[in-house]
Amino acid sequence: MEANRRRKRCALVFAALAAALALTAALNVSVGSVAISPAEIGDILLRRSGDVTRSNIIWQIRLPRLIMSAILGGALALSGFLLQTFFGNPIAGPFVLGISSGAKLTVALTMILLLERLRAVSSWTMVAAAFAGSLLCVGFILLLSRRLRHMASLLVAGIMVGYICSAATDFIVTFASESDIVNLRGWSLGSFSGMSWEQVGAAAVLVGAGLLGAFLLSKPMNAYRLGESYARSLGVNIRAFRAALIILSSLLSACVTAFAGPVSFVGIAVPHLVKRALNTARPLAVIPAVFLGGAVFCMACDLIARTAFAPTELNISTVTSVFGAPVVIAMMLRRQRER
């Protein structure tokens, strides 16, 4: 009976997330500086007919952008959940641990170095650079974690690493040549704008692989919830498992940083909200729900970012912080109370 209630609750949450996903997607397609009626959108999407300009707005601007924000939002939330499992702490996330900023720095460096010789840098190169930066930062954080046993000090260290990387990035951007700056400045603050289908494809492949990997890890992740010793006694290969968690979460957050720049708070706020909604932290349920939740959250934030003060567009992090940070504060208060 109790188990049934749980299953029902799970189904309900997933249904709600799917509905929210559909709704935000629909809003993202239809709302914008150029008003396009629902009937026309239907024509453009289904029959590929209608006005060329409007068709281009839908197919070349809005669709790739909303799909990208969904994919990257999901990736970001999932990356946060993996890091939280790794550190056994719900406040861990790619942004607070400085991992996003590390990726930002290497991507900025790569762009400036390569753009001087080549006209364009491929998505794969960008992701590879971001991945390298993420791993570098995680490696540093892990080194610190041997000394800093307390999670709070580790988080502070992560935030400091983030600041250092951001400062270095700003430094580079300041001295970059004029033509690079236009691209870099928007990106280094975080934005889903200007996504191409090629980028969407690359992100889909990488994030899809990350999502699959996370699913395959869901069993040991579940066992790990009781702590390292119990997990080991159940037959989990702790070293391999921890390495897999780090690589997956770095890959996911590297994708986000490479394509959209740093996006804050999604990685902490979404897993927390989703776990509360599901009323369980079982990875098998949380992984897909977190991915959907992250997608909805980022699509909605992106919608606000580009419409709230149109034609001026906000940075995506501005919006995610406004909604994400209060969630994190509420979560910390709640944890304090439960102690």
């Binding site: 719900p90 919830r225 009781l226 702590g227 010793s229 119990y230 006694s233 776990k275 009323n279 369980t280 932290a281």
Partner: peptide, 12 residues
């Protein structure tokens, strides 16, 4: 095994 390690698993 049943160990002395005290863990506080979330929502379990």
């Amino acid at each position: 095994v049943a160990l002395t390690e005290r863990t506080r698993p979330e929502l379990m």
